[in-house]
Design a protein around this nucleic acid. Structure first.
Lengths: 344, 344
DNA sequence: ATGATTCATGTAAAGGTTTACATAGAGGCA
DNA sequence: TGCCTCTATGTAAACCTTTACATGAATCAT
C-alpha cells in the first residue's frame, strides 16, 4: 500500500536535481532559495511524499518540538479544558504535547522529568503545585518551564493562572449585593495556594463591606465533596448559621448542597451557595450553581505563549519570573438569591 | 546549576574505560556484558548523570517509543478515564503518550497522522470512529493501529471496546425485571456503531421477554443532552407513554430527566430511567442514575497490550483484526423502580 | 596439543538532518 | 577590464546511537 521506505531528503534532492542542503533550506527557510529552485523542490516533495524525519532533525538541532505537560490527574475537568487551550496553541506553533500523568506519585514525576532530558523536550508545563524535592530533581537540567493553575512551591517558575483573589472577591461581593451578611467560607486551608488566595478575596470583600469577623464563618476543607458535606454538619452544631455559603470550589459547593438537601433545606430559598471553577457538573445539579468561571482555555493558550517566549529567548531565566493572572467572570445561575427574612 | 552539556555515551565510555558499544550493551542488554564491566559502566553512568538521547536512539532504530492517541474531544469524560489506563500501561512498557486533539476537524486529524510518520511513532490509538477518508490518508503509511470505544468505519483495525450489545441488554433486562413492559429507547441512530449495538442489545432483551414492537418506543437521538430533552417532548405528543426510558448514553438520560422534572414528574416514581457510560455527572444528579459502567481504564490497558503485541509482531497485520469486547457492569442507583400502577 | 566453539569487547558504519564554510556566477562600479 | 560584493548553491562535518562484523582470549572436546 504505502512505500516501505519513507522518502528521505536525499530522494527529494535527487529528483529535484539539487543538493540536500538546498532541500533543507527550501523547507525551513524558503526565502533563502531562488524561486524556481523552490518550486522544483516542492514538486519533488509532492512526488515523493517526503516528510522530514523529526528524530534526525531533533538530534541535529539538540532539541525536539515536544512539550511535556505534567499533571497529577488527567481526569480533573480543569485539566482537560486547559489542555485544549494548550494543545491548540502548541499546535499552531508546530509543537506537540506529551502528557505526563503523575497521579501524585513523586517517582512517576521524576521519571517524566527525566523524559524531558532524554527526549530533549522543548519545554515543560507543570499542573502540579508541588515538585518532588529530591536531590535527583534539583540536579536535573530542566527545559524552559511554566506553571499553570498553581504556582510551584519553592521554585521560581513563571506562572499563569486565574486571579483567585479577584474571583473570591467577586463571588463574595455577589452574595453581599444580594443582601447576605452572615456568610460561611467553606474550604479554608493553608495547603493550596489557590485556595488561600480565594480566601483572601473573600476577606477583602467582607472588609470593604465592613462585615465584622463574627459574621464570617470560616470552615476548613480540602476541596473535596466530603469536605463540603462535613462543613454543613459542623455549622449546624454551632450556635449561629450563615445565610450563604461561599465555597472554595464547585466540588465543595456540591457537597454543601447535597448536605443541605439531605437536611430538607431548599437552595437558594433557605441558603444561597456559590462555587468556584465552573466545572461541568455545576450545570447538572439543581439548582444550577452560581460560580466563578475558570478561563481555562485562555490559561492554556497564555501558558504556551509565555513558554514559547522562554524557549525562543536566548538568555534563559535572566528576567524575574512573571505571574500572569487572568481575571475570571462570575456566572449567574440559580443558587443565589436574597436571604430569607425569618431565621431558620 | 546543571552541566550545560548532557553527558553522552562517549563520556561514559571514557570514564568506565570501555568502548561506546559496551556502554550501549550494558544499558540495553546487560546480560551480554561481563559483570565487572557492567558495574564499571553503571558507576560511570551515575557519575556523569548520563541519559540516553532518545532522538539519536530513535533515529538509529527507525522508530521512537511514542504512541499517538488521536481523540476528537479531550474533554470527554470517557476519554480522560481511558487515557489513564492507556498512559499507565504504556509507561509500564516504556512508551510515552502523545495526545492529538482533532476537534472533529479532518485537517487536524491528517496533520496528526502525518506526525506519526515524521516522528516515527511506535503506534497509533484511535478514539475517533471516523477517519478522514481523503486520498492523503489512505496513501499514508501508518504505524500499528488500534481503535478504542468505536470501531473505525471502513477500515479494518483491531478494536477494543465495551460490549455494547451485552450492556444494552443488561440495562433493558433490568427494566424488564422491575416490571416495565412499555419502554422507550432514546438515541436511535445509524451514525454511531456503538449506539447501533446498544439498540441491538435492547431488541435482544425485548425479544427474549416477548415484548411486541408496539411496546418499544424508538426515538431518534444523537447522544446529546438536547436529544434527550427533545425525546421526552416528542413522546408526550404521541398517544402512548412508556413507563421507562432506556437511554443510549448518560448524557441523553440526563436530558430526559431534565425534561421530566420540568414537566413536574418524579423519577423514578413516575418514570424509570437508565443510562449508559457512567459519566461522573451520573452521581451528581438526583436521583443518581442507574447506568452501565464503561470499563474505561481496562479498555485503555487492553488497548495498549494489543497494540504492543502488534508493534512487536514481525509480520504486521497478517492475522485478521480482532475485536476485544469487554463486558460492562450494571450500576444500580436511584433512577429505576417498579412502574406506577395508575396511568399518567 | 590442537582445532573448534564460545564469550566479551572493540571498530566502524549507518541512520537523516542542519549548517558552517567554500565556491562560483552575476552584477555593480571605477 | 579588473575588482568587489552579493546571492544561490554545494560539500562535508556533526549530532548520538545501535549493531554487524571483526578480533582475541578462554574454554572445551578429541
Amino acid at each position: 500500500m504505502a512505500p516501505k521506505n519513507q522518502a528521505t531528503i536525499e530522494d527529494v534532492a535527487r529528483i529535484a536535481g539539487v543538493s540536500i542542503a538546498t532541500v533543507s533550506r527550501a523547507v525551513h527557510s524558503p526565502e533563502r532559495v531562488a524561486k524556481t529552485t523552490r518550486q522544483k523542490v516542492n514538486q519533488a516533495i509532492l512526488v515523493t511524499g517526503y516528510t522530514t524525519n523529526a528524530m534526525a532533525r531533533s538530534l541535529r538541532m539538540g532539541r525536539s518540538n515536544i512539550i511535556l505537560v505534567l499533571a497529577p490527574d488527567i481526569g480533573d475537568p480543569n485539566f482537560s479544558s486547559t489542555l485544549i487551550g494548550i494543545e491548540t496553541e502548541a499546535r499552531a506553533r508546530n509543537h506537540a504535547i506529551l502528557i505526563g500523568h503523575t497521579q501524585n506519585d513523586p517517582q512517576r514525576a521524576i521519571d517524566y522529568l527525566r523524559y524531558t532530558t532524554s527526549h530533549k523536550a522543548a519545554g515543560l508545563v507543570l499542573f502540579t503545585g508541588r515538585l518532588p524535592l529530591s536531590d535527583a530533581v534539583s540536579a536535573m537540567p530542566l527545559p524552559p518551564t511554566i506553571a499553570v493553575f498553581e504556582p510551584v512551591q519553592d521554585a521560581a517558575y513563571p506562572y499563569v493562572g486565574v486571579d483567585d483573589i479577584a474571583g473570591g472577591r467577586k463571588a463574595t461581593e455577589h452574595l453581599l449585593a444580594a443582601g447576605h451578611r452572615k456568610i460561611a467560607f467553606v474550604g479554608d486551608t493553608q495547603m493550596r495556594a489557590a485556595f488561600r488566595r480565594r480566601r483572601a478575596g473573600f476577606d477583602l470583600a467582607m472588609d470593604a463591606a465592613r462585615v465584622d469577623q463574627d459574621n464570617r464563618l470560616i470552615v476548613e476543607g480540602d476541596g473535596s465533596i466530603e469536605s463540603g458535606r462535613h462543613a454543613v454538619e459542623l455549622l449546624f452544631m454551632r450556635d449561629t448559621l450563615p445565610t450563604a455559603f461561599m465555597c472554595v470550589n464547585d466540588t465543595t459547593a456540591i457537597g454543601v448542597m447535597n448536605a443541605l438537601a439531605a437536611r430538607g433545606y431548599n437552595v437558594p430559598l433557605d441558603f444561597s451557595v456559590t462555587g468556584f471553577d465552573d466545572v461541568p457538573q455545576a450545570t447538572y445539579i439543581s439548582p444550577a450553581l452560581t460560580t466563578i468561571r475558570q478561563p481555562r482555555s485562555i490559561i492554556g493558550k497564555t501558558a504556551i505563549e509565555r513558554l514559547m517566549a522562554l524557549i525562543e529567548a536566548d538568555h534563559p531565566a535572566t528576567e524575574t519570573p512573571k505571574e500572569d493572572l487572568i481575571s475570571p467572570d462570575l456566572v449567574l445561575r440559580g443558587s443565589v438569591t436574597t436571604p430569607r427574612q425569618t431565621p431558620i
